[in-house]
Design a protein around this nucleic acid. Structure first.
Lengths: 249, 249
DNA sequence: TCAAAAGTGTTGTGGGTACACCCATGA
DNA sequence: TCATGGGTGTACCCACAACACTTTTGA
């Protein structure tokens, strides 16, 4: 079955079960090998990249919908999502399905709700859904060369801005890093999100003063040079720090 | 024509022109006589208070819709609105129109987009629409005693939180105060939004250092005691300060 | 003459930045 | 032995909080 036919078949089914005109688009950030990445799908139809978005069930809370969508379209589960913006221009998606007629569910006008989340890519084996040829972590640095559908580039940019705002006021890293990590890794994460370098000594002191790290009795062996110490987050204190203050990095 | 009949008559018309399942609710804050107020309507039907919300036209940007809604329902124009949250629980409005049948437009499930704005109440003569008995500025302090429809209390609370966040990082007052105002008035505004008292001397210095005020060659005559100096905002510098930094009040 | 408004001084604190030094250690 | 990582010291700056004092002036 070709991709066009698959979309057509789905259309009637979607009309049954989902609210018209309303969609949700999750922007999932991952951090791996010192790079910040976004989770994107490549649709069979049109061969463009897009966010793993979807529709809202007629009998489903909006927040539930995003969680379900992410599971169906990418195999990602158990992740904390936060709404960051609404995209409601009347023509934001009008050209995408232009070679279908207007009875197609997908072709309606959609107002979409943007959600963002952070996660550690290695936690998941990505599974693309039937619409998509592939589902991948794309480096932010590669985004400019990629063809993105509709206004999804704009959505990602706004999500990134929100992430920067957030990191300036609350600690980040719990969801983005593996269970055990080194201080240089954590610092790199902050640098990548903020887009600037930080002073090592000051970073060390600040993160230590937050008291959210637990030093482990192990080192990361194998690299050249001295083996760096491994840390993990102290969940309780981390959560407390989230409620509290604002920093300026 | 009674209020019930008016709603029934409107219903078919609404189905023609507006997107189903999607609404917008503006939370408009005003500041007057040292109190922070919210703009609310009292619906004829049910005699409960609610936000001056409305629906999104099939051929209208979401942002345009809120502006139109506010004009139609309260007579408020020329105001800067910002999205602050989405309310999408499946049962958030299910009981409100319970004595109508399910074909009523208003009775569908709605996901609503919250917008907030600041304005100076004296700028407008409020005009309630045909649904509403009255349209008024309600003091925040009076909210607890008032019966609010659906989840509108929750929406207002989230808007207020957003306003507090905002004032902590950017100057506020341009839209909330009259053209000319005194320093004590401005300070009171900050205190009311933040819910705590500020030191006068420090406030004076901080606001002066921001350089966003223009001292006028007049005083506010008439009160008891010394006549306070009048100020107005320096629009250019105010705008610049909005782009820039974060404070902590 | 009193109370509010305006303006200024002072002092301590805490955080952030910048830089510089120490030691440890794996290949 | 050298590059990296871990850890600490210090000096400067700035913003802010707290408090206090002065002067002006309208009713």
């Amino acid at each position: 079955m070709d991709s066009r036919q698959h979309i057509l078949n789905k259309s009637e089914e979607l009309k049954e079960d989902f609210l018209p005109h309303l969609s949700a688009d999750p922007v999932i950030f991952g951090f791996d090998r010192n790079e910040l990445k976004v989770l994107l799908l490549k649709m069979n139809y049109r061969q463009q990249w897009l966010l793993p978005g979807g529709y809202v069930g007629k009998d489903e809370d909006l927040d539930e919908a995003v969680i379900r969508i992410l599971k169906e379209r990418a195999g990602i589960t158990n992740i904390y999502l936060e709404e960051f913006g609404v995209f409601g221009k009347k023509n934001r998606s009008e050209f995408y399905f232009e070679d279908f007629d207007h009875t197609l569910f997908h072709k309606q006008r959609f107002v979409t709700i943007g959600y963002y989340a952070l996660c550690n890519p290695s936690r998941f084996k990505l599974i693309a859904d039937a619409y998509s040829e592939t589902c991948e972590w794309i480096c932010l640095s590669r985004l400019p060369e990629i063809e993105l559908a509709m206004d999804h580039r704009e959505i990602i940019e706004k999500a990134l801005l929100t992430l920067r705002e957030k990191i300036s006021h609350k600690p980040i890293g719990y969801n983005l890093l593996p269970e055990k990590f080194t201080l240089p890794e954590l610092q790199k994460l902050y640098e990548v999100i903020l887009g600037k370098e930080l002073n090592r000594g000051n970073f060390y002191r600040k993160i230590m003063n937050l008291g959210i790290l637990k030093k482990l009795d192990e080192q990361r062996k194998g690299g050249a040079h001295k083996a760096p110490d491994l840390y993990s987050f102290n969940k309780r204190k981390y959560t407390k720090a989230l409620e509290g203050g604002l920093n300026t990095w």
